[in-house]
Amino acid sequence: MRLWKSKTSRQNLITLAMVTVAFAVLFFLNEGKVLSRSFSGQLVPICVYIVMALSLNLTVGILGELSLGHAGFMSVGAFTGVVAVAYLQQYITSPVPLMLVAMLIGGIMAGIAGFLIGIPVLRLRGDYLAIVTLAFGEIIRNILECLYVELDGGALRFSMFGSADVGGNFIISGPQGASVPSKLSTFGLGIGLVLFALIVIMNIVHSKEGRAVKAIRDNAIAAESVGLNLTSYKMKAFVTSAILAGMAGVLFAMNYSTVEAKKFNFNTSISVLVMVVLGGMGNLRGSIIAAALLTVLPELLRGFDDYRMLIYAIVLILVMLLNANARVKQIKLACSQKLRSLFSRKEASK
């Protein structure tokens, strides 16, 4: 009840409840084979993009720094995850713990990448992070396209060129991408990761670290004048964001039989950014809804074939226009007030 009293934690609980209910319904529909095949194939990607959008929202919406290479962290997580699973499956046989360990390792590796980028860039003020993350995304993709990893008698071997003479078992073979040992991603794991990401971000936002991060976003000079170490808090938020993206990458990779580095290109980074902007900067609930819709939309429009991307673009433009429209805002406000008065009357009658 204590949680219910404060407005912010009430909002959090509502978001959590919404997500849980929506996922529970989907989960049972999926289990009961009610969903169409193409849609149930979309369930894991939906979870992946929700986590991606949530984590990018931490950087863009809450920290206020633009990151254009979020797919780069996703790919670091994805490829590390594949290698981790291929190597560890001889020790851990049950799929769920194996997947959890892989996600942990993938997240940590992505976090390290984020930390290395953050050291020089987060000390600066301005749009440098956007430039550097843009480059990072491209560099990491190019590196992964010529990376070969093979499992040779229980040991991992890394090289930057393929060696055809060795009879090893290639996990990652350069431009052909990584071959996933077994499809371990399930919708249940996806739901778990979404809830985990949501809780982590909410908890950060409502702690002293979150306040510091928002203060830095609103006014860096004032934040410094009250004794905040800017770099340290920017780093905490950015690394957390990278870790979550890495975990999402593992989930993504384990949903397919092969993963190619070119999947994690600039377009992927931008489409995640579009989800964040569409859902509203700093608005977690909005990110979830936007990510789910934008992942499903291209599939839903498959019937229109040639005009698919055109309609997708038009939908995006319309949503942006309507979001900024004063009259629509008024209608939204009136609706929410009506809802609120309805609820308060109910409470009063109790």
Partner: peptide, 9 residues
């Protein structure tokens, strides 16, 4: 001199 609050909070 020119107020610097954390406006969004």
């Amino acid at each position: 001199q020119n107020i610097r609050l954390f406006g969004g909070m």
